[in-house]
Design a protein around this nucleic acid. Structure first.
Lengths: 102, 102
DNA sequence: TCACTTGTTCGAATAACATAGAACAATTGA
DNA sequence: TCAATTGTTCTATGTTATTCGAACAAGTGA
């Protein structure tokens, strides 16, 4: 397994963030992480194939939205709230709030 | 020409809004409308084909982000700020602000 | 060492999207 | 009536995304 490379905060792109969050599965992952805190990939009980889930985590990671750190055989995912807030203040908060609305 | 049908405010979908804004050309259209007010399609001087521009306006319209109203031979585009704000408070503002950042 | 767990990577199929040229529709103005 | 303007729709093409199964890699624990 290759080490996941996360973009620096300064390299986070708005277009990429919006695109990453415009997929239902990925938005669901992000809202779950926001409400339940850091979780391993498998802990999210996504009803999709492993490889598909891995793809979505990768898109979120490369967009700079989540951080993945190895912990034993699993990867713990957490939101990069501070980095996102420093780059695009309020963006994640508003999107999370909007997601709870519907 | 078919009349453009706009979704009701209540039918505006977060996923669709995020997807619509995750394209550089469309985000550019929206930021231009935000700063320069209502404009005809041709007034935006987009460096893309007419048909491509028309496609992007359609995506924005169907996502509920812009409103188009016929005015002579042209269509005047304006942001649906109030509808968006009532559906997803703060979302458009934060994205517009983020877009100015980079 | 060996099975098990967790998640990645590869390859391939399918779907969705962006782009543009050509033809068309509607309005305006001469 | 006729040409010009404005933008849409149709059709086609190439690119990008999504999804999955299968194989792989790395750690854990017996």
């Amino acid at each position: 397994m290759r080490l996941p490379n996360h973009p620096a905060a300064a390299d986070i792109s708005l277009i990429r963030v919006l695109h990453a969050l415009s997929d239902p599965a990925r938005l669901s992952i992000v809202t779950t992480l926001a409400t339940q805190g850091p979780l391993a990939c498998g802990a999210l009980n996504l009803s999709i194939a492993k490889s598909t889930a891995s793809h979505h985590f990768r898109v979120l990671r490369e967009a700079g939205i989540i951080q993945m750190q190895a912990e034993g055989t699993q990867f713990i995912n957490s939101l990069r709230r501070d980095d996102l807030h420093s780059r695009f203040p309020g963006l994640l908060d508003v999107i999370l709030q909007s997601a709870t609305i519907g």
